[in-house]
Write a protein that binds this DNA or RNA. Structure first.
Lengths: 268, 268
DNA sequence: CGATATTTTGAGATGAGTCAATAGCTGTGG
DNA sequence: CCACAGCTATTGACTCATCTCAAAATATCG
């Protein structure tokens, strides 16, 4: 359904944010706040994009930011040797393209993973509004800052950790992002393949598969990727935090070693 | 030297940017542009800070951004198990604390590695100026965007690569950052220990030491950390890009093995 | 000139990548 | 409705790069 009604009208009035289609968007506000009203003047929402379509490609001139209103988008880069590396996943409420503001071109590809509704924010039009509407400026700054912080956290989590820990970090991260959007933090519907998740986490696809199995055997989750239910998120979180202190007692126990922790209850 | 002259005056007029003490600062401009003049009203430069002093700690309330005018600052976090993980290094011209804007507290520690001159930008005072002076706002957005981009690039570089590649990436990155500040891209004076560099790159200190030796044996660099001269930055860059060029000539099994798989020992 | 921190070097264990082959899905078209 | 193709996931075997532990050597600092 094409929602366009004119040059910029674009969006119907709905209780949820017309800019992002969901609640936790940077630009969201429950009421008709100034920044949303302002922004709505320039955001354009096109028809849904389907899996495999690109919002933009690396190298193409930077023109707009994008809000994900529905669906899933991945950003990725292709290395010299032709491998694709996933840089991040974007869910409803996320802004895509923030890393391009500082330059003249996009630095990554942005590719739809799961049928997505996307809002286009022409940056040239956004910029003057930022000065006029301080609240809008503040929102953008916050969004960017938070992305930097998230980036730091992710790097910390991924660097120098075991595959198991990275995987746990990935699951927890996804769970929390879903939760922040009002979705279930335990019943994950993942739009990405195991290979893509692995690429994001720096793991070989085979390793991801093995980890799914291991975690399943531990009773920590059920399903296998696509549909994934986190049964003991406390345990997973504990692994992610590397809090696997071996319960004192007979150390060297085979079973404990297999578990890698011997955790069971929710984490502290 | 205390450069304070009053509540906010703070800085002498010098050809180089009084805000950052060097050229490539986001807020720098060669002439007396509006944004610098504006910013100068609120930036406070204190006396130099020495190694080990902290600009801020993780958890303390966010109040200001910092510009590094001289010296080196590292940002780091301490994991639950007490290990310190280096998140980044900041050199003259860099802004520190951008990841805290989105929250109410700092998320990392910021610690002086090498006697540093630091400018304090109270965020509450900066914010209104951003709307008044669009150019200033633009600079800040660019700085943040670039940081996100750099973060992405670093993650790409570090994730799923060999220790050798990570190390090379680290060296190249440092070299380029120095070069961007008008310093020699080959004669590196590193303020961080091998352990810190390793922490940043996700490598064990021992591994860093071994890599220094390996690279030295290759004739790619000289020195050992602290003072480090890059002799063949092309080769290092090639390793960083995973493009290790085959030494033309004997394309025998040795060479191929070295190219395709791990290192052997000898080389060009 | 001691005391502490950093760096070097060695030896050994192992986690995770790679290769390879199988099994399971998903969508398409006959 | 079934067969097929292509993709995704699973599983096993093997290898090796890197971590860990341990100890010596060197540098740095007061």
């Amino acid at each position: 359904m094409d929602t366009r009604q004119g040059r910029d009208a674009v969006v119907e009035f709905r209780p949820d944010c017309p800019l992002c289609g969901s609640s936790p968007c940077v630009f969201h506000c429950r009421d008709e706040c100034t920044e949303a009203r302002t922004l709505r003047r320039i955001v354009e929402v096109g028809r849904p994009m389907v899996r495999g379509q690109y919002l933009y490609h690396a190298g193409s001139p930077f023109a707009a930011l994008y809000t994900v209103r529905a669906g899933t988008v991945k950003t990725c880069a292709v290395t010299e040797d032709g491998e694709e590396r996933v840089i991040g996943f974007s869910f409803p409420g996320d802004i895509v393209g923030l890393d391009a503001i500082g330059g003249s071109t996009y630095l990554t590809d942005a590719c739809v993973l799961e049928t997505a509704s996307v809002g286009v924010i022409p940056f040239a039009r956004l910029q003057p509004l930022l000065s006029e509407v301080p609240a809008l400026q503040h929102r953008l700054l916050q969004a960017m800052s938070r992305q930097i912080a998230a980036e730091h956290e992710m790097r910390l989590a991924l660097l120098k950790r075991t595959a198991e820990e990275r995987f746990a970090v990935g699951l927890v991260s996804l769970s929390e992002r879903f939760a922040g959007r009002g979705l279930s933090p335990t019943a994950l519907r993942l739009a990405m393949s195991q290979a893509e998740l692995g690429s994001y986490l720096g793991l070989a696809p085979e390793t991801v598969s093995r980890l799914f199995r291991r975690f399943r055997e531990q009773g920590w989750l059920d399903g296998t990727g696509r549909e994934c239910e986190l049964l003991d998120i406390g345990a997973i979180r504990a692994v992610a935090r590397r809090q696997r202190r071996v319960p004192s007692g007979s150390s060297g126990d085979e079973a404990l070693r297999a578990v890698g922790a011997g955790r069971s209850g929710g984490g502290s």
